[in-house]
Simulated scan of single mutants.
Amino acid sequence: MLLSAPELLKEESRSVVVRAQVRGGPVPVVILKHFRDDLVCGLDDQAGAEFLTRRGLELGPRFLAGDVDARLFVLEDLGRGRSLEELLRGEDARAATGGLIATARLAGQLHARTLGTQSEYELIRQALPPRHQRVRVENARFLLEHEGRLLRWLAAVGAQAAPGLHEDLEAVARTLADPGPFLAFTHGDLAPGNVLFTPSGPRLLDFEYAGMRHALYDALMWLVTVPLPDELVARADITYRITLSAQCEAAQVDSAWTRARATVALARTVNLFQWLHPRVLEEDREWAPGLSERAALLHHLARCRSLLAPVEGFPGLARTLETLEARLRERWNVPPFVWPALREME
């Protein structure tokens, strides 16, 4: 098999991605991924693609081969297409809306079809240079070990933590570490730029943060992370829930569903305050293209508050975040972010 006509697609500190034509091989075009600096992310990416391929799930690019020593693996090329982010930044509201709903359905299919497969995934991942800790345990530990970063924000705005904050964080961390019936294989970075619409349908790209964790971790994309109209969030949520419910009985129970959404939303909102430094109080910077750090923080707080409303529990954490939100809104008057394709829906 000979490769020709290489095309550089991405060159970052973490990885290099090249498309190449194949002479005499089983597929006409392949994608080569070389992970340079972050071995864990590179191996998680490779393991995720190999896992889906072995299970026959055509939800991402098909894994073809890998060489750990070379830090290189090969994928089938999905062809050219538009990402969900490109649809949202376009002018076609119908295409953008349909793209988001299709993404929610795709995530539901991914999770429904990988419930209870943690042993199979671990066999693939640990056959590579093994991970010393499961990704869901890493997520839980980060939440607890960096509680001080949330307290730093409270001090910076002259607020105090509500009683029970630490206990609520521990409860959220326990669920992250042990999601029970919601444990599934997750993409881990379900951003609009990582969903590609191909002639065969939507496909997921880049599994660098993939692993077995709470299924709704991926649903955070529309629930919390990406600013979207409430109507569209509701449509994505019900589409995802219906798809996941085909295999997950817990997703059929309203109380379990609302608590699961609130739990992952709390974790992600606290994480954002752990990732960002209070210097944002003095200087706003870009968090994602077109979205500032201040806008992201306020959006996360508002969405988290909405998802917590129907849930009993987490009173200390809920009151702490409500106080933080009130103090930040006193300081900031940030216009909400609106995707170009969805302006008429706002």
Rank of each mutant, 00 (worst) to 15 (best):
N139T: 10
T269G: 01
L228N: 09
D237Y: 12
I101S: 06
V74G: 01
V137R: 15
Y121M: 02
G148Q: 09
D230V: 02
A236P: 03
K10L: 09
L100V: 03
A236E: 11
D69F: 05
Y209I: 03
G98T: 08
A210G: 05
P310K: 14
Q46I: 04
W153V: 12
I124K: 00
M345K: 13
Q274G: 10
M345N: 12
Q126K: 06
A309S: 11
Q252A: 07
R94C: 13
L196Q: 11
E170T: 13
A49Y: 14
G108A: 14
M1R: 14
Q109D: 08
A318Q: 15
C41P: 12
W332F: 11
P163S: 04
P227N: 09
A288H: 14
V18I: 02
P289E: 10
H299P: 05
R174A: 13
V157K: 01
L2E: 15
E76T: 07
D168S: 05
L328F: 06
A102C: 02
L281K: 04
Q133L: 15
T186I: 09
G98A: 03
A184S: 09
A140V: 05
S292I: 14
L64M: 04
M1S: 15
P227L: 03
S292R: 04
P340C: 09
N271F: 14
Y209M: 12
E167P: 04
S255F: 08
G99R: 08
E208V: 04
Q126L: 07
R303N: 13
R23F: 13
A161R: 00
G79I: 05
A296Q: 04
P28S: 09
R113L: 14
V334G: 00
G42S: 15
T103A: 08
W287Y: 07
S255C: 07
T103H: 05
A318V: 07
S245N: 03
L3M: 02
A267H: 07
L39T: 14
P129F: 06
R14I: 12
T258N: 13
D284G: 01
Y217L: 08
R54S: 06
M212A: 10
G201Y: 01
A162Y: 06
I242E: 15
S306P: 04
L228T: 03
L165G: 02
L88C: 02
P336Q: 15
S4F: 15
V253M: 08
D206W: 08
Q46Y: 12
A70E: 10
R62V: 10
F207A: 03
S306Q: 15
T186R: 12
G56D: 01
V17D: 01
L52Q: 10
F35L: 04
E50Y: 06
G24T: 10
L9Y: 02
L298Q: 11
C41W: 15
V270W: 08
V280F: 07
A96F: 02
E170N: 06
W257E: 02
L301K: 09
